[in-house]
Design a protein around this nucleic acid. Structure first.
Lengths: 191, 191, 191, 191
DNA sequence: TATGAATGAGAATTCATTCAT
DNA sequence: AATGAATGAATTCTCATTCAT
């Protein structure tokens, strides 16, 4: 299971799971369907995950890692606080763009599926909001943006981004043009 | 069943359903639990709804009516386009504040539950976005706000509101103070 | 319930029940539907019958009475044993023709529905077979028909009649012409 | 499921189903009981049949095949039309004798159970009647039997056979002796 | 007598999980 | 490690029957 081959198969299963969860929703996704999509037998699924629920949670953990790593990297290269903010926003939008199935699962099934899932999603969002919130606080302190409740505003930013992503998930549009509009909207919102 | 008493019981069941759906999610909510919460036998549920699914959909239909009616009323009294925008936003925030369970169902279970449900929610959001979008378009045309894609921006506004509502659903805070911050954020976002 | 009005209502319910049982079958017939067809409320049904099952059984009892009375009457006027036989056959065919719903219930739902029902149907058939069997025995004894197992042959006659009735229930044909063919077939069968 | 072992289990389930349907009737037969009788868990039933109804219909299909194949085979070796007729009748009687449960299901539950079932039974009977009807027509044309409506008479023959089978299902008698009586009866009936 | 809303036991079906091979 | 047939708990929905009005 931790052999290189085992890890590859685990990733195949996760990818299959993301696809099935994305199109069916957590409850209506069947383990047999995930296994089939990954070209393995049903029982094999349980060699890699203790349960359907754990597989689902692993999926979010994966997104958690990917998004936060990307955001951290993007912020790392930013010279000042406003650029950090902008880079963070861009990093989130891009990551979701590249991980459509994962994004669908997180954005659509969201917190409705499982209590633990809601918990974990909250945690990702909280983490993200903390990063943004710090920037907002700092930027507010030096007068770069309008003063206000940094945490709340961080969440509003996230909410707008979330909707932008959903909007894009529905309307197949040019991501770049939209991203620009979203970034502009958000930066202006912050003053 | 259509007697005044029948309508009362139907409302009791809807309220119970909203509460149970809100705390369990669509799939994990059991009809027996809804019935119990409404102090009736399981079978009674089926005198008022043809299925669990239909009951769920009725719930959204109900919110649809309430929110849109409130928004329409709020806009009616507004003297200019910016006030309309502001009044709309306020109306949405207030309505969800008053209908916590219903709001939970719509915001959290949302699109993840059922294909038809996702459809209906999209339709509510679309309707709302259309109202806001018109205002944005008009306001943009007369130079009151920054120019830009009105539809996309309407969705971003809705996304931020959605998040504000979720934020509030989680952190029991003073709604008024938050609402003000949200309104300010959004109006500034629009320029 | 035994007042003239009560008896009238009971008959209305029985007629309604026959119609519903005939088109739905015993299990799929709903008490509510029978009541509706009789233009009374569901609860009223239970003022006249202790249960759905008992109502069903009463229906067969009714046919039992009608058919056997008719056969007895027809036989009464017959001068000799062959005419008795012929008159009996004719009486059965005619009765079922006039009581289509009742006939449907008995011929189609038949013994499949309830153990008690099977019992009762057997009893009607047995009774009928006994009448015919006696004639056959007598006719055989005096050399009017070929010798053979009277009871079995009586059942064969009944089986052929049953099928003739079903055939007619399906193909709307001229009953008289068919009846003649059936009578001829049966009398020849007996030699 | 399509492995040789799967087919064996499917047959076990069909046999169990025939037994349970025969003694309880379609509606009162529980899937759990069929499964138990086949020594498997309830869910296993659904690995082999999509529904209780389909299982029931498969049972008739099975009888359909068996009976018609037997009749076809029996007719094949018959030198003339009268022998064909006789062989057909014998084949039907024998087959039902050997497949008691299946026969019970078809003869007793028969058309009362399900609309689709009634349809299929009609189709079997129609098929059988067509075979017999041709013989009767041919035999009538060459003057071997009395002239008359061949289709109707084919059904009368079937009805008498049906009753003979039911009679035997009830009274455990010597089949051979009875069969001879039935054949004689029917051939004489046809003149 | 009549009503019809309420009851709740009962059954079909699904599917996550297990385990013998 | 892989398989996939088997399991059986869980849940929705139906409908005969009751009973307060």
């Amino acid at each position: 299971m931790s052999s290189p081959n085992g890890e590859r198969r685990r990733q195949e299963l996760l990818r299959a799971a993301a696809a099935v969860f994305a199109r069916r929703g957590y409850e209506r996704a069947k383990v047999a369907e995930i296994a089939e999509q990954a070209h393995v037998a049903t029982g094999t699924f349980y060699l890699y995950f203790p349960s359907k629920e754990e597989c689902f949670l692993d999926l979010v953990a994966q997104l958690y890692e990917i998004v936060l790593a990307r955001v951290a990297r993007a912020r790392h290269g930013a010279p000042d606080v406003l650029r950090k903010l902008e880079a963070s926003i861009a990093a989130v939008l891009e990551t979701f763009e590249e991980e459509r199935d994962l994004a669908s699962v997180v954005l659509l099934q969201g917190s409705g599926s499982l209590p633990q899932m809601a918990e974990r999603l909250r945690s990702v969002e909280q983490h993200l909001a903390a990063l943004l919130g710090e920037d907002l606080h700092e930027a507010g302190a030096v007068g770069l943006i309008a003063p206000g409740d940094s945490e709340l505003r961080a969440h509003l930013v996230i909410g707008a981004m979330r909707e932008a992503l959903l909007y894009r998930l529905r309307h197949q549009g040019a991501p770049q043009a939209q991203d620009a509009a979203v970034r502009e909207f958000l930066l202006r919102a912050l003053g």
